[in-house]
Computed example of a mutant assay.
Amino acid sequence: MRLRSRLAALGLILLAGGAAHAAEVTAVRVHGLEEAMEDNVLASLSLVRGQGREMSWRRLGHLVREAEDETREALEPFGYYSPEIHVERSESGDGRGSFVVDITVVPGAPVRVRHADIAIEGEGTDDFYLQQDLAAFLPRQGDVFE
């Protein structure tokens, strides 16, 4: 009987220890971006997919570190390749290992097309429709490189 009591006590200690080491992201907030860019960042973040789930402290640290690279990649389709990104996690104050992650972004200047040299060579050079397509080709010099 003593062995059974000791095993039960050990099991309770292990369960309690596991709960004490769990972390949970309750909210991820992005600041400093237009709505479309913010939506793309949130859709790209592993933190958002892990939101509301208990995870180890190690996993939380990994996801917070990855958030900067994921945010940077999510802004590239909009022409922003060198944003300043600051990721900060703070306890939500409930005493249960819950965190809020704030990502503040200063997108900087978008990359613009400096020079474009597009031509049709060969038999299609004088084709009216190909020339129309060529004239409508985007992006043009000075446009944001999206």
Rank of each mutant, 00 (worst) to 15 (best):
T125C: 00
A67S: 12
R59I: 03
A19E: 04
L33D: 05
I118S: 00
G97D: 07
T104A: 13
L33I: 10
S56Q: 09
A23V: 03
R49M: 03
E54I: 00
A74Y: 02
G17A: 12
D102N: 13
G122M: 06
V106S: 13
A119F: 06
G50F: 15
A119R: 15
V113A: 08
E68K: 15
R112F: 02
V87F: 02
H21P: 00
R89T: 05
Y81V: 12
F78I: 04
G108K: 06
V113D: 03
M37T: 00
E73H: 12
A116H: 01
Q132D: 12
A74S: 10
V28L: 01
H21Y: 11
V113I: 15
A43S: 12
E34T: 09
E121Q: 07
V30Y: 06
W57K: 13
D102C: 01
E84K: 11
G18F: 08
V87M: 02
H21A: 14
R114H: 10
L33A: 06
S44A: 14
M55I: 14
D133R: 11
L15D: 01
V41D: 05
E123Y: 05
R29W: 05
A36L: 09
H115C: 00
I120L: 08
R65V: 12
D133E: 10
L47V: 05
Y80N: 08
D126L: 13
E24C: 14
